[in-house]
Write a protein that binds this DNA or RNA. Structure first.
Length: 474
RNA sequence: GGGCCCUUCGUCUAUCGGUUAGGACAUCAGAUUUUCAAUCUGGGAAGAGGGGUUCGACUCCCCUAGGGCCUGCCA
């Protein structure tokens, strides 16, 4: 058992406790981030506990999804994960102690009894109570039973929440919750309390869907004489229409955000800014977030996921990201789309990415912006491209080829200057041959400005593509 | 039904009794222009409603409305 020092005197220990029943929700990611920020702010410890007490729904695959999600987000726990189900004996041990203290009782109600009681309780506007609170277990005829917490009929339980403030519950509103199921397995409300206590958690930062549970859990802490941690309940994330985030709103799993080409540092920045702020600061580093963060400053109202703002922040981090990393991400992404890639893809992308990344909101978009450089010669021109190659433009492009072949500095600025000079020498505007040149260079794919496109392609490839096109349309 | 939480521009937020209610994203207009984007300049845009308290309320209190959560042998 850990030292009994009150949480306020120990160094900060936070945790996230997801249940492994599917994908990792973006809301879980934000809760993880806030716990991580809070722990790091105080030089404390951030832990992970897998809440797998629901044996029906928990899967090993979902556990892996959580590990992967946290790793991708860069929110590594400071210790190996604790698996809740593995601690079932300890949970039962605590319940035995509660039984001895008279803080819990065996309840032999049948499913039918329970349903009837639930109905009565509802009609009376009170919480569920079992007649077995006061009955002698000997009358049970050895029927199966659950262990229930023996709630208080009077008084109130106060939760001092770091974000919601003081919240009071009348004890009569708090039901006699099940601690141990009839199959002997511990339930969530019991397990969280025991595990948070045993793991030395000082700050329980979680979604505000647990605010009501906190009162019930507080009763268990008190019954066991466990020191109460601090609580901080974060509002949930909603979709753009203000309703609870669901499939209808698009992505909700962390993995989907990664697939769509969002950068983890962008996610951290965006998620931190969602429901928390530090003055007018919008774009900040992890170090700044850690320095500034405090759960007490978390906004009390639910926040909506704003894709446009996420995209804007992601663009900011794509600009900041170094090219080789972006290159690897783009290649991964294109492979996932089953795109056929030339052998020298990496070289081509390395040349193109610096010239186009400022305009990319996601890695997927960045991949699209690089399409022109990935085309392999000879590029077949579609109808639209061909129609741009009138006799006049073909003549212009032929002379431009000659002009460019004498160009020795292949930088966007030098090339832009050169194109302008060429146009001037020809006595035409850039518009006269710009569209045609673009078509020839890109083969119809999206491409950056002409100078950048030429630069990304390099002189050999650029001239060859011109040559191909001119001979093709002769 | 009962309990609890929440409510500032379209969205995320600042404000912690005295501000022309600020910023960001989005949007609109203009500039730039070889496509798209980016970039630059400028504009519009908010305290849910009603009562109090106070010299003074977005800020404190109450009511109403709307949204959310819990009310499981799910977590």
């Amino acid at each position: 058992m850990p030292a009994a020092a009150p949480p306020s005197e120990r160094s900060v220990v936070t945790r996230i406790a997801p249940s492994p029943t599917g994908s990792m929700h973006i809301g879980t990611a934000r809760v993880a981030l806030f716990n991580w920020l809070y722990a790091k702010h105080f030089g404390g410890t951030f832990l992970l506990r897998i809440e797998d007490t629901d044996r029906e729904r928990s899967t090993a695959g979902a556990v892996q999804v959580i590990f992967d999600g946290l790793q991708w987000l860069g929110l590594q726990p400071d210790a190996p994960a604790v698996f809740q189900y593995a601690r079932a004996d300890r949970h039962r041990e605590v319940v035995e102690a509660m039984l001895r203290r008279g803080a819990a009782y065996r309840c032999y109600m049948t499913v039918e009894d329970l349903a009837a009681e639930r109905e009565r309780a509802r009609a009376d506007g009170r919480a569920i109570r079992s007649p077995w609170r006061d009955r002698d277990p000997a009358e049970s005829e050895n029927r199966p039973f659950v262990v229930r917490f023996k709630g208080h009929l009077e008084g109130e339980t106060v939760v001092n929440d770091l974000v919601k403030g003081t919240v009071a519950f009348r004890n009569k509103e708090l039901d006699d919750l099940v601690l141990i199921r009839s199959d002997g397995s511990p339930t969530y409300n019991l397990a969280v309390v025991v595990d948070d206590h045993d793991m030395g958690i000082t700050h329980v930062i979680r979604g505000d869907d647990h605010l009501n549970n906190t009162a019930r859990q507080t009763l268990i802490y008190q019954a066991m004489g466990f020191a109460l941690p601090e609580f901080g309940h974060l509002p949930m994330i909603h979709g753009e229409d203000g309703a609870k985030l669901s499939k209808r709103h698009g992505a909700q799993a962390v993995s989907e955000f990664s697939d769509m080409g969002y950068l983890p540092e962008a996610m951290r920045n965006y998620l931190a800014r969602l429901g928390w702020g530090h003055g007018d600061d919008e774009l900040f580093t992890d170090a700044q977030a850690i320095e500034w963060f405090d759960v007490r400053d978390v906004v009390r109202a639910p926040a909506r996921l704003d894709w446009a703002k996420l995209a804007h922040i992601n663009n900011h981090y794509i600009r900041l990201a170094d090219v080789p990393r972006l290159c690897d991400l783009v290649i991964d992404n294109l492979r996932r789309q089953d795109m056929e890639l030339p052998a020298d893809t990496k070289t081509r992308l390395l040349a193109a990415i610096p010239l186009v990344k400022d305009g990319a909101k996601t890695i997927v978009e960045l991949g699209e912006l690089c399409q022109f450089v990935l085309k392999q010669r000879p590029i077949t021109l579609d109808e639209k491209c061909r129609s741009l190659l009138t006799e006049e433009t073909r003549n212009l492009l032929t002379r431009l080829m000659d002009w460019l072949s004498k160009q020795d500095v292949w930088t966007p600025t030098a090339l832009l200057e050169s194109l302008r000079e060429f146009a001037k020498a020809e006595g035409v505007g850039l518009g006269k041959f710009g569209a045609a040149l673009r078509a020839v260079l890109s083969g119809g794919a999206s491409a950056p400005d002409l100078a950048s496109a030429l630069c990304a392609l390099g002189s050999d490839e650029s001239l060859a593509r011109l040559e191909d096109a001119l001979s093709q349309v002769r």
